[in-house]
C-alpha cells in the first residue's frame, strides 16, 4: 500500500514538472511536436529509473558509509553523466532501433534537472531502496504524462491565431500553467 501511495503521489500530486518545477527546459524545448515529446518521455523513464537506483546505492554504501556526504552533488552528476553515456553506447550496440528512436534526447538528459532532482528528492525523503525505485519510476511516468499532454495541446495551439507578443514560449508557459492548475486538483487525494 505504501508503494502504491508513493506511485500515485509521484505521478499526480507531486508531478515533477508541474508541481516540483524540475525538468522544465526539455518540457518547453521538446514539446513542439508529439514525436519528439514521446522520444524524450521514453528516454527520461529509462534513465531516471536507473539513475534513481544507482544514486541510492552510491549514497548509502559509499557517501554515508565513508561520511563524505558533502560530495553528493559532484558524485551524483558524475553518476548520471556516465550512466547516460553508458546507456547510449549499450543501446547503439544491442538495440539500434530504440537508439535511433531516442536519438539526440539521450545526451540531453545529462542536464535534465528532473533526473538529478528526483535522485536528490529520494535521498532527502530517506526512502528505502524499493521506495526509491517506485518513486523514481512514478516521477518519470509523471514527467512523460505531462510532456505528452502538453505536446498535444501545443500542436493544436500552433494552428490557432495567437497574438504576436504571446506567440511561442509565452503561450506555452501559460498553457503549462493551465495544466498545472488541473493537476492541483489531485492535491489531498492520498
Amino acid at each position: 500500500m505504501e508503494y502504491f501511495e508513493i506511485f500515485i503521489a509521484g505521478i499526480f500530486i507531486n508531478n515533477i514538472l508541474l508541481a516540483q518545477f524540475l525538468g522544465n527546459c526539455p518540457f518547453l524545448g521538446t514539446s513542439k511536436k508529439m514525436e519528439t515529446a514521446v522520444g524524450m518521455a521514453m528516454a527520461v523513464i529509462f534513465v531516471l529509473v536507473m539513475a534513481g537506483m544507482i544514486t541510492w546505492i552510491v549514497d548509502t554504501y559509499l557517501l554515508k558509509a565513508l561520511d563524505v556526504e558533502y560530495l553528493r552533488t559532484v558524485s551524483f552528476i558524475l553518476v548520471i553523466a556516465s550512466l547516460v553515456q553508458f546507456v547510449e553506447m549499450f543501446l547503439k550496440k544491442s538495440i539500434p532501433a530504440l537508439y535511433a528512436g531516442l536519438g539526440i534526447f539521450l545526451p540531453l538528459i545529462t542536464t535534465n534537472c528532473a533526473v538529478m532532482g528526483a535522485c536528490l528528492l529520494n535521498i532527502s525523503k530517506e526512502y528505502s531502496f524499493l521506495s526509491a525505485l517506485v518513486s523514481s519510476f512514478s516521477y518519470a511516468v509523471g514527467f512523460g504524462l505531462a510532456l505528452v499532454l502538453f505536446a498535444g495541446l501545443r500542436e493544436r495551439i500552433n494552428l490557432a491565431r495567437v497574438p504576436k507578443p504571446l506567440q511561442d514560449t509565452s503561450i506555452g508557459l501559460i498553457t503549462a500553467g493551465m495544466i498545472a492548475l488541473t493537476f492541483m486538483s489531485f492535491k489531498g487525494m492520498v
Binding site: 508541474l18 508541481a19 518545477f21 509565452s170 503561450i171 501559460i174 503549462a176 492541483m184
Partner: peptide, 22 residues
C-alpha cells in the same frame, strides 16, 4: 504563489517583454 501562478506570471512577463522589444 502556487505552482500554476509561476507559469502564468512568467508567460505574461515574457509577452510584455516581447511587446516592448518589438
Amino acid at each position: 504563489v502556487e505552482a500554476p501562478g509561476a507559469f502564468i506570471a512568467l508567460g505574461l512577463m515574457l509577452a510584455a517583454m516581447n511587446l516592448i522589444g518589438s
